[in-house]
Design a protein around this nucleic acid. Structure first.
Lengths: 132, 132
DNA sequence: ATACAACCTCTAGTAACTAGAGGTTCAAGC
DNA sequence: GCTTGAACCTCTAGTTACTAGAGGTTGTAT
């Protein structure tokens, strides 16, 4: 099977300019071209793009994706490098969750105080004025 | 009290180039200059920068900060616009938390499966290969 | 008078795309 | 065979919120 960039885009839900961008930065192999210079993709490249998109949806950076792509074609003894990348990312995700949760609390308090106050002033703005 | 940009930076924990940047984009008023063209800040500007930094630490975008800064000097009857911005942001924060939590789960499953498997292959890489 | 830190402006770089201009190719219908 | 229009091509510039660096000036302490 051979796909045009538009068809590949539909199959992967990855936008056309994004596919070109991934090629440009060397994440995706350069596509073969038709006589009229249009990109042609194989199933192999479709698989790669799928992999990339899945990684991206999990929040990996393009550089991490690059490593994971590489590890994908490595010998088995390197497999735990992939685990390491994933575990590192997991840590970051957890940190981010914690940060956001305390942020949520602070925002909630702000809004709540403002809503329940009889003051004419906006307590939200007041609390934004304060040092942390 | 009058501060140099470096002193202001220390007082607010906001980096010097960032302060200049905020001035450049019109978030912070233009500073007075010394005879030798160096920026001089007043307590008023210190307050503003404090406000900005606090908003940023709560995850508001610079555009949101701009609105909040503006509302800060508005009549009372506009005060609920600030609430709206904050509540909107709160919603986004909650969404982000949910997304990250399901992401956390997926990553956990990946790592767990890989660790407990007897297979020589890396299940992390396998699951990254799969469509979602 | 001389260091040297802190300041100045300006340009360019970061991540990960996205938008738009201006031009070419492909496929379908007549 | 011709025309139309969608899909393709390249290239440049814009997005967010800064950060880094070059190359030069000012302020302050000794």
């Amino acid at each position: 099977m051979i796909y045009s960039i538009g068809q590949l885009s539909k199959k992967t839900n990855c936008k056309v300019p994004t596919i070109r961008y991934y090629e440009e930065i060397g994440l995706l192999d350069k596509a073969q071209r038709s006589a009229g210079n249009q990109r042609q993709y194989t199933d192999h490249q479709y698989q790669s793009l799928q992999f990339i998109c899945h990684c991206r949806s999990l929040g990996f950076s393009l550089e991490e994706v690059r490593e994971l792509l590489h590890l994908r074609h490595c010998q088995k003894h390197k497999k735990h490098q992939a685990d390491d990348i994933v575990e590192h990312h997991l840590k970051e995700v957890r940190q981010k969750i914690e940060q956001l949760q305390s942020l949520e609390e602070e925002l909630l308090t702000m809004v709540h105080n403002c809503k329940t106050s009889e003051s004419e002033d906006c307590l939200v703005l007041k609390s934004l004025n304060q040092q942390i």
